[in-house]
Amino acid sequence: MAVQLLRRQFTVAQYHQMVEAGILTEDDRVELLEGEIIEMSPIGRRHAACVDRLNRLFSDRLRERAIVRVQNPVELSDRSEPQPDIALLKPRPDFYEAGHPQPQDILLLVEVADTTVEFDREIKIPLYAKSGVREVWLVDLNQNAIAIYREPSLSVYGQVEELRQGQELTVQAFTDGSFAVDEVLG
């Protein structure tokens, strides 16, 4: 006889209530994905360096054209509030103090992965597609490659391209400038 586990699904509001009640703290490295609270992997040196590199590249080159958010929440639905490594957002005077960015506010999400490549590819990227996020980059530190996902529909992206060192990439929302893959990977 198979045993069936019962899982408790949470909403973003309930997730925030857990923080307010002290059940979860600001120091807990968790995110809410499809109603489940998922513990995030520790950040290694290479991962941190890549995120810092992207932050500097985007901040320097996009200045007033986008808000660069580092490892902060985006609200995709009432059941999902992931924390991508980098989010490029439409500028807003309040810097999203009134509420976390939602899919229509997102110009690009970037996930940097070494130990979480499969999780990001199989869980997070389909979630981003389902939510209508226009563009996602998956920086695979193990393969020294960047997968670019565009044209979301249902839970897949219609366009997927993998770039390697020596190649250039652009943010779909800002086609007037490019970034070298080498700049991102270091």
Rank of each mutant, 00 (worst) to 15 (best):
G177C: 03
A66W: 03
V19K: 15
A113W: 00
R121H: 05
R61E: 12
I86G: 03
V70T: 13
E36W: 02
L169A: 06
M18N: 08
Q159C: 08
K130W: 01
R56F: 07
L32N: 06
V160N: 05
A173Q: 05
D78W: 12
S41T: 07
L141I: 03
P126A: 05
N144H: 04
T115M: 06
G35P: 05
P82V: 02
L6M: 13
M1K: 12
V117T: 08
E81V: 09
A49H: 14
L109C: 04
A49L: 13
V133R: 00
R56G: 01
E64H: 09
V3L: 15
Y157A: 10
L76N: 03
S59I: 00
V110Q: 07
D28L: 11
R63I: 12
E97F: 02
E162L: 12
Q83K: 14
P93V: 04
E183M: 10
E161D: 10
I38W: 02
V171N: 07
T116K: 04
W137K: 08
H16D: 04
E122V: 11
R150L: 11
G186R: 01
L108F: 08
H100A: 12
V51G: 12
L5G: 11
E161C: 12
E168S: 11
H100R: 06
E97G: 02
R134W: 03
F10W: 14
A49N: 15
E75H: 07
E36M: 13
S80P: 11
A48Q: 13
E162M: 14
I23A: 09
D27C: 05
I106K: 04
P93F: 05
R29S: 10
P152G: 00
D176W: 01
M40W: 01
R164Q: 14
Q14M: 11
L62V: 04
A48E: 08
G177D: 08
N144V: 01
P84C: 11
D140R: 09
I23L: 14
E161S: 11
S41M: 15
S41C: 13
L185E: 01
S153V: 07
I123M: 06
A49M: 12
V184F: 14
I125L: 13
M18A: 10
R79Y: 15
E20T: 09
L32E: 02
Q17W: 02
A145I: 00
M18R: 02
S41A: 14
E122P: 00
T170I: 06
L154R: 11
R8Y: 15
V139N: 14
R150G: 04
M1E: 15
A145H: 02
